[in-house]
Amino acid sequence: MKILVNEETREVSTTTLAGLLDELGYGDARVATAVDGDFVPASRRGGHMLAEGARIEILAPMQGG
């Protein structure tokens, strides 16, 4: 299935958000996720099914003002 991760097209085999993070190698990284513009808490990633063309944002701590 084709999805967009941080605006890059990826071909993935998993169907859940938790599976996606594993498949892409995020492991135990401290990240927050949003799917199609809506925040998905870590506790709900396992049950969050991804659809073809889903837009996923994976964000992490960064310098800020």
Binding site: N6, L24, Y26, A60, M62, G64
Partner: peptide, 22 residues
């Protein structure tokens, strides 16, 4: 200290290093 969020790539993990420093 103020901080922010940006896209993280699985390979680089720049955010993880920054967070550990903060």
């Amino acid at each position: 200290v103020t901080v922010s969020l940006r896209r993280e790539s699985a390979g680089l993990r720049a955010g993880q290093a920054f967070w550990s420093m903060i």
